[in-house]
């Protein structure tokens, strides 16, 4: 299948540091693509480049066949890109319901046909199991739930590509399992999901294809079983034993 999102040779330098070094990847519709790697490997940086919050020093971002490297974030979002944030970016002055609803209303500013933001928000709240918290302020709810609110918010724009930055951290085991099911269902409906996650269990359970970053460099890519047995990945994760 044709990729809906491609990055080609993305490089990001901060001062003298290379945070991301020549990374290329493809995200295809209908499946979950994983992006894993130790802390500081450059995963969030790559997401920021894809969404346009950060301009790369080199490389191209292609969304739906169009080069969007020079486009501002809002245009990429209108091109079907949505994301969640590792460091939560919720609208703290709004309730859970309004956080999700306002995303639909913002979508209605640029997309036709319009959606009924209230009804759609109710549906998403139901889908994500946020019903009990819907009228609470977002700063009062636990992190795991807050991450679901962010996911709900991004779903309201009905994206073609969904970038999830550590959506499971802060959720317990059972919640994570539910979450995995949800991701698989989303992908089955045709959304291209790009997942950054530390919970390798979740990644292995959901992803059809995985990229592994280590200090900015792509060290492996492939199906979950290949990744599991890849020596470079094991070294990156566990470090080389001195004993």
């Amino acid at each position: 299948m044709d990729p809906v999102l491609e990055v080609h040779g993305i490089t990001v330098r901060f001062g003298g540091n290379v945070a991301v070094d020549g990374v290329s990847a493809r995200v295809e519709p209908g499946r979950v693509t994983g992006l894993i790697g130790p802390n500081g490997a450059g995963k969030t940086t790559l997401f920021n480049v894809v969404t346009g919050l950060l301009t790369p020093s080199a490389g191209r971002v292609v969304l739906g066949g169009r080069d969007v490297t020079r486009q501002p974030p809002f245009k990429r979002a209108r091109g079907g890109l949505a994301r969640t944030f590792q460091r939560l970016e919720l609208f703290t002055s709004l309730s859970v319901r309004d956080n999700i609803r306002v995303a639909g209303e913002i979508r209605n500013r640029w997309a036709r046909p319009r959606i009924d933001a209230v009804a759609e928000a109710d549906r998403v709240i139901e889908l994500l199991g946020l019903g009990a918290l819907a009228d609470r302020g977002v700063s009062e709810i636990p992190t795991g739930m807050a991450r679901r609110v962010e996911l709900g918010r991004s779903l309201m724009t009905q994206p073609k590509v969904l970038l999830l930055d550590e959506p499971a951290s802060g959720q317990d085991e059972q919640e994570t399992d539910e979450f995995a099911e949800l991701l698989v269902r989303l992908a089955a409906n045709g959304t291209a999901v790009f997942l950054v996650e530390h919970d390798v269990h979740l990644v292995m359970a959901t992803c059809a294809y995985i990229y592994v970053l280590d200090f900015g460099v792509l060290i492996a890519e492939g199906a979950p079983d290949d990744i599991r047995s890849n020596q470079a990945v094991l070294d990156a994760y566990l470090g080389e034993s001195l004993t």
């Binding site: 130790p38 802390n39 990156a236 994760y237 566990l238 470090g239 080389e240 034993s241 004993t243």
Partner: peptide, 8 residues
């Protein structure tokens, strides 16, 4: 986070 190194 990820290091056997430190166990040594």
């Amino acid at each position: 986070q990820f290091a056997r190194t430190v166990l040594g």
